[in-house]
Design a protein around this nucleic acid. Structure first.
Lengths: 205, 205
DNA sequence: TATAATACTGAATGAACGTTCAGTATAAAT
DNA sequence: ATTTATACTGAACGTTCATTCAGTATTATA
């Protein structure tokens, strides 16, 4: 038998369904229990599949988790691109950004599991590079946005790179804080933070 | 034999020395390898003591780590109180605060291990409460500082509570970022962040 | 010196868990 | 109908690791 690329329909279809079913159960479990606390056995119990089958579809527990993160990122990018056109001024974009962060990211089921995964499971892995990649993208986005604001005359001229870092830090920290605050306040705090970022707190005379 | 409170000198002294030796080795190992990656066996190997002895002096691995965190906190408080008198204006205090954060906390050996510990080992524990306690203290400190600034007329009147959260978030996020940035820039970025917190970024006319 | 409390030892326990692999079932190709 | 690639099973493996405990050593008390 030769490899036929895409056909052999029925089997491949079932296989993909199975993979999706495994991924879905895993996502749910990782979201509930976290990465480490979710065992392969848990996924077996939730799906009725077998251990071996999980390792057939994914290379390892980490591979499975990475697969879920990739799925998330794709979905995230789509949503981002969709909302891009709605804002004109940089100030609007900043407020739009934090809204998106609170609504989409903060409540995402994998959010906590990812934090845990990154803070424990990275040693010899390339995960650190992945994080750095995400962060670079964020910083690049922030920098371009702030530069746009400076060019348009909305913002003061300044070091866009440094400000991008400060903005990213504020948003990261805020996301962390928001986990421990009453849910309803998260968006308010994020908006307020943008306000401070724009206006400052110093008294003017 | 009855309990004699504090006497029975020689034995108690040796015991406390042993405990300190165990704690010191553990601190070093946790700092190097992290919480999970440091095994009791590692501490045994580093001290020449026995497993049982560690459990004699500390209740558990977690108990040992908590002991180290408590030590850290005491030392931290002392240093804080010592530096308090040097600043007069709130602006100075804010810059003094970030300096202290970068110099003392950011490079503290247990800093990473604590992050890891908090993000994984908290489930049925009271650790979450401990964190909340630390954070409450930070927020209270920030709030009082900002309120002082408002009262003195240095800062705009506003919601000190919200601003305290935003300041804390910024500093938390910045600490996180600083781990991935060239070391030398950490302090610069922190100072710049305070500048933005005070001045904002918006163009004025 | 006898006794009792404290300090310490380290082999044994036991549970958790990711991963492997020899083998079976199913569907596709010849 | 036969062969072959793909999909799946689950018992077994191997390792790691925190924790326990029965026993020994050391020092303080009576």
């Amino acid at each position: 038998m030769k490899q036929e690329g895409k056909t052999m329909n029925k089997k491949r279809q079932q296989s993909e369904q199975t993979k999706a079913r495994l991924a879905e159960a895993a996502r749910s479990l990782f979201a509930q229990k976290g990465f480490k606390a979710t065992s392969i056995e848990d996924i077996v119990a939730a799906t009725g599949s077998s251990k071996g089958n999980i390792y057939y579809h994914f290379q390892s527990k980490e591979g499975l988790f990475r697969y879920l993160l990739d799925e998330w990122y794709e979905e995230w990018s789509e949503q981002w691109d969709a909302k891009q056109g709605n804002y004109t001024t940089v100030v609007d974009k900043l407020y739009g950004l934090v809204e998106r962060l609170v609504v989409d990211d903060l409540n995402h089921p994998l959010s906590k599991a990812m934090d845990e995964f990154l803070s424990t499971e990275l040693e010899s892995n390339d995960v650190q590079q992945v994080v750095a990649g995400y962060m670079d993208e964020h910083l690049r986005f922030n920098r371009e946005l702030l530069q746009e604001g400076m060019d348009k005359g909305e913002l003061q001229q300044g070091n866009a790179e440094e400000l991008a870092i400060i903005l990213e830090a504020t948003l990261m920290g805020l996301a962390e804080m928001a986990k421990r605050l009453p849910q309803a306040d998260a968006l308010v705090m994020h908006r307020k933070a943008i306000e401070v970022f724009l206006q400052g707190t110093l008294k003017r005379d």
